[in-house]
Structure formats: structure tokens, C-alpha cells
């Protein structure tokens, strides 16, 4: 949680300081060692967790078995009493008592295993969180360092090449101007195309009635009239 707060403190320093030593080599080594340690303790906790959970399951089964045994012997004792076998009943009751003692011990062990499982799971969770925090801290520090170093390289390069970073307004104006130039050029090209290009030639030919471009309407009408005349003549010939 404290990673961002640390970064806030760091970023109050000068840009040069940040680019030089966000995270010194020693601190990085310590964090990396801590990450390794935490990973190791997670592995260990996972291994014991498997064992403890197995024992927890075993003790649960054992508790079930003992409960059934107690029930069975209680039944037997009852039967003995009904058959007035007082001595036998007492013996069976003694067995029930022993079983109950065993049951109590098993229950205690079971509870202890359950507590241990919770503890191990919590340990794994907190170790994972610790790893994530360290990794995040290293990542944030290294990224900050990179960004500041990159910015310094960029400023240096631009500075040494003689050109300087334009201010934002100038940049914007230039880009906009270029876009306008492009739009103007496209418009001009279109106009030029109309004047000198293919379309202009077609228009001139049509005007002169040359080639395919002549007076299509007039020609079509002539064709239709000729058809009608031919049809009229045919009718007249049939009539004769």
C-alpha cells in the first residue's frame, strides 16, 4: 500500500535526482532477496499445508468412526440392561467411556489442524501480498527512472541537434497548416482535373458533336421515326 506514497516523496525531488537514483542497486538487491525469501516461505507453507490438510481429513474420518462406535456400544449396553445383564452392561459402558475419551482427543487434534490450516493459508496470502508489493515497488521505481532518463536523452538529443522542441502552439499551427495545405492541394487538383483532364476533353468533343459524344437525343428520335415509318408501310402493304 505504501508504494505510491514512497513514489510521491521521491517525485518531490528534482528531475535529475529522479533519473539518477530512484532505486539504488543496493535497495534493488534487498528487495529482490526479500522476494526470493518470500517465495521460498510460500513453497514451504504450501508443502506443510498439504500435510496438515491430509491429517485434518484423517482426523475427521476418525471422529466419524468413533461416534459410530460409541453409538453401537451404547446400544449394546442398553440391550444388556434390558436382558438384566448388569455386569455386562457395566463392562460395555466402560468401553463407551474409553471411546468417548478417544473421541475427545481426536476432536482436539482436529481443531488444532483446522487452526493450523487457517494459519498457513494466511501466511501464504501475506507472503504473496509482500511479493506483489515489492515487485510493484521495483517496477514503479524502474519505470520512473527509465521515463526520466529517456526524457533527458530526448532533450539532450534535440538540444545537441540545434533544433529545439517547438512550443505546443507552434507545433499545432504547423500541423494544422500542413493539413490545410493538403486539403487545398486536393481541391486544386480536382479543379485542374475538371479544366484540363479527361472530363474537359469529353465535354469539348460533345460540344463539337464529334464521335460518340454527338447529339444522342436527336439521333435516337430519328431512329424511332424511321421505325414508325417502316411499321406504317408494312400495314399499308397488308391492306392491299
Amino acid at each position: 500500500m505504501s508504494v505510491i506514497r514512497k513514489m510521491m516523496t521521491l517525485l518531490r525531488g528534482s528531475a535529475r535526482e529522479i533519473s539518477e537514483s530512484v532505486l539504488d542497486a543496493n535497495a534493488t538487491r534487498i528487495y529482490e532477496q526479500e522476494i526470493l525469501d518470500a517465495k521460498h516461505s510460500i513453497d514451504e507453507a504450501r508443502a506443510s499445508l498439504t500435510g496438515v490438510m491430509a491429517k485434518e481429513m484423517q482426523s475427521a474420518r476418525e471422529i466419524e468412526r468413533l461416534k459410530k462406535e460409541v453409538e453401537r456400544y451404547e446400544g449394546l449396553a442398553l440391550e444388556a440392561l434390558e436382558k438384566s445383564q448388569e455386569g455386562l452392561a457395566e463392562e460395555v459402558a466402560g468401553r463407551v467411556g474409553a471411546l468417548e475419551l478417544e473421541l475427545e482427543e481426536q476432536s482436539k487434534a482436529h481443531a488444532a489442524y483446522a487452526v493450523q490450516v487457517v494459519k498457513l493459508k494466511d501466511m501464504i496470502k501475506s507472503a504473496e501480498a509482500r511479493i506483489r508489493e515489492h515487485e510493484r515497488e521495483i517496477a514503479m521505481a524502474k519505470t520512473t527512472e527509465s521515463v526520466y532518463r529517456a526524457t533527458r536523452s530526448i532533450s539532450d538529443t534535440i538540444g545537441s541537434s540545434g533544433s529545439k522542441l517547438l512550443d505546443a502552439r507552434q507545433s499545432l499551427e504547423r500541423i494544422k497548416q500542413r493539413h490545410e495545405d493538403l486539403a487545398d492541394r486536393m481541391q486544386a487538383a480536382e479543379a485542374l482535373d475538371k479544366e484540363l483532364g479527361h472530363k474537359a476533353l469529353e465535354a469539348k468533343l460533345a460540344e463539337a458533336g464529334i464521335g460518340n459524344y454527338g447529339d444522342r437525343g436527336r439521333k435516337a428520335l430519328e431512329r424511332i421515326k424511321a421505325k414508325r415509318a417502316a411499321a406504317a408501310q408494312e400495314t399499308a402493304e397488308k391492306g392491299e
Binding site: I138, A139, K142, T143, E145, S146, V147, A150, I154, L165, L166, A168, Q170, S171, L172, R174, I175, R178, H179, L182
Partner: peptide
């Protein structure tokens, strides 16, 4: 057409960063 607004790509161990200075 956007030469005044170059993009700078840099990286650290965990990230690639593309930056444009405004």
C-alpha cells in the same frame, strides 16, 4: 504530417511506454 509531435517509445523491465510531449 505530424513531425512536430513525435512519439518516443521506451521501456523498463516491466513495461513499454509510448510518450508524446505536449
Amino acid at each position: 504530417g505530424r513531425e512536430e509531435l513525435p512519439i518516443f517509445v521506451t521501456c523498463s523491465d516491466t513495461q513499454i511506454l509510448c510518450m508524446c510531449y505536449l
